[in-house]
Structure formats: C-alpha cells, structure tokens
Lab assay of single mutants.
Amino acid sequence: NKFNKELQWATWEILNLPNLNEEQVKAFIDSLKDDPSQSANLLAEAKKLNDAQA
C-alpha cells in the first residue's frame, strides 16, 4: 500500500543521512513506525536537522 512504500522510502532516506547521530535516527524511525502517515513530514524534519548539523 501507499503508506508502506512511503514508510520504506523515508526509513531508507533517514538511515542514510550522514549528520544524524544514532539516537536521532532511532527517534525518527520510531516516530515513523508510530505514525506512517507522517512519513513525508518526518523525512523533511530529519533532512532539516541533518542540514543544520552539517
């Protein structure tokens, strides 16, 4: 289903952001699991944090 694909993509993207630490990655992944419908928003937040920590 649509959410599953978005969830998988967002998870992969977050796991490959170079500037997030392990705790941050885990928090984002946990949030994705809690509410897959928010995957696009969570991914945007993760990318923002990644850029801020570059």
Rank of each mutant, 00 (worst) to 15 (best):
F3R: 00
A27G: 12
P18F: 06
W9M: 15
L20D: 00
E45I: 09
W12G: 11
K26N: 05
E45F: 06
E13F: 10
D30R: 10
A52D: 10
A54D: 15
L32Y: 02
L7M: 12
L20K: 00
D51A: 12
A46W: 02
L49H: 03
E6H: 08
L49V: 15
D34S: 14
P36I: 12
Q38L: 06
F3I: 12
K2A: 15
L42P: 01
L49E: 03
K48R: 10
W9F: 12
A40T: 11
E45A: 12
F3T: 04
A54Q: 12
L42N: 02
I29S: 03
N19L: 03
Q8H: 04
P36Q: 04
A10Y: 14
N4Y: 11
D30T: 13
N50V: 01
Q38P: 01
P36H: 03
L32Q: 01
A52N: 10
S31G: 10
Q53P: 03
D30V: 12
N19S: 09
L42R: 05
N19V: 01
D34V: 15
P18L: 07
A44K: 15
P36E: 03
Q24S: 02
Q8D: 04
K26W: 08
V25G: 03
A52I: 10
F28D: 00
N4T: 03
E22L: 10
A46E: 00
A44G: 08
N1I: 05
E13L: 05
N4F: 07
N41H: 12
A46Q: 01
N1G: 07
N4A: 03
A52M: 08
K26V: 08
N16H: 13
W12H: 15
K48A: 04
N19E: 04
L7Q: 12
K5I: 08
L7N: 04
E13G: 04
L43I: 13
K2D: 15
E13W: 05
F3M: 03
Q24V: 04
V25F: 04
W12I: 07
P18D: 06
A46V: 02
W9I: 14
K33H: 14
Q8W: 08
D34R: 11
N21M: 12
N4M: 05
V25Y: 06
F28G: 00
P18S: 07
I14Y: 01
L42M: 07
P36Y: 04
A40D: 06
K5S: 12
T11E: 08
K5Q: 15
N21V: 09
N16L: 10
S37Y: 06
E6L: 07
N41L: 08
I29L: 11
E13A: 06
P36N: 03
K47Q: 13
T11W: 05
A44D: 11
N21D: 10
D30S: 10
Q8L: 10
A10F: 15
L32R: 00
S39P: 04
W9E: 15
K48L: 07
N19Q: 05
S39Q: 06
L15Q: 15
D35N: 07
Q53N: 08
I14Q: 01
A52K: 07
K47I: 05
F28E: 00
L7Y: 11
K26Y: 08
A54P: 07
N21Y: 13
E45G: 04
L17E: 00
F28I: 05
E22R: 10
K2P: 09
N19R: 04
L20H: 00
L43H: 03
K33L: 14
T11K: 09
N16F: 05
S39D: 03
N41M: 11
S31H: 12
A40H: 10
T11P: 02
I14R: 01
L32F: 04
Q53G: 04
N16S: 11
N50Q: 02
Q24W: 02
A46N: 00
N50P: 00
Q38H: 09
L49I: 10
L15P: 02
T11G: 03
Q53I: 09
A10T: 10
D51I: 06
N19W: 11
D30M: 12
L7W: 12
E23D: 13
K47R: 03
P18K: 09
I14T: 01
W9N: 06
S39K: 11
E6I: 05
D34W: 11
A46P: 00
Q8G: 04
A40F: 11
Q8M: 10
F3A: 06
N21K: 14
W9S: 07
V25L: 12
P18I: 09
A27K: 11
N16A: 12
L43S: 03
D51F: 09
L32N: 00
P36F: 09
Q8K: 11
N21I: 08
P18E: 08
K33F: 11
D34A: 13
A46F: 02
A27S: 07
P18A: 09
I29D: 00
W9T: 09
L42T: 10
L17F: 07
L49Q: 09
A10H: 07
K26D: 06
L43A: 05
S31N: 11
K2E: 15
V25N: 02
Q53E: 05
A40Q: 14
L49D: 02
A44Q: 10
A54T: 13
K48W: 05
E13T: 11
Q24A: 03
A44L: 13
A27H: 14
Q53L: 11
A27E: 12
A52L: 12
K47W: 07
N21W: 06
L15G: 06
E6W: 11
E45S: 07
N50M: 01
E23A: 14
P18W: 04
D35E: 06
K48F: 09
I29F: 05
L20Q: 00
S37P: 03
